[in-house]
Amino acid sequence: MATYSLHLAHLYGDLLNTYGDVGNILALRYYANLMDTDLTTEVISIEQSFDPDQFDLAFFGGGQDYEQMIVSKDIQTKKDGIVKFINDDKPMLAICGGYQLLGHYYIGADGEKIQGIGALDHYTLSQDHHRFIGDITIKNEQTGETYHGFENHNGKTYTGKSEQPLGVVVDGHGNNGEDHQEGAIYKQTYCSYFHGPILTRNGELAKRMLLKALHNKYPDADFSAQEALEIKPTF
């Protein structure tokens, strides 16, 4: 038994789980163990309620078009909970479809507008029969960290004024292939098109999310040992 424990909500984990997205949870658990922390996870799917106060972290992955359409309807019922979770400064990672559904809307495979929950101020358009596929490198100008990943998306996302990019594109396409930005950060919510998955190659981000969650849950504890954890390169 570790000294600390964190509980993660895997939003729609049984429906949205493409491209090894589950690796993000495996990486969080791996780094949590190195930080004397147990990470437990719970899938919150359609027709289940989401109580933000039960969770310290959340992960929201991407899926196939069909499953995402089903989720877009159901997630409207969880909107208040998710917005509260974000506003409580709890760390969340949203990838691809999850990223899009946190925004206002995205355009589906047949050109239809699919509603998100507008918790974050971005929207997503589509490309005609084209995807951004390939290795990508970005740099976060605030932290100076460089993130490596693999992008694979049709959507072109445009972020709002309240969002910071996860990074500036060094090599690859990013959110829309136009503004040299990749992903979005709003409060403690991190969004990205990186599959691959993002946290297995970029342990610094996993560490950042875990530390924030630990400080939220244990405000008086001393986490200097956890802060000092060295993240070894995996890529």
Partner: peptide, 9 residues
Amino acid sequence: GIDTSWIWD
């Protein structure tokens, strides 16, 4: 497959 993400599944 140029993307190795599938090994995580």
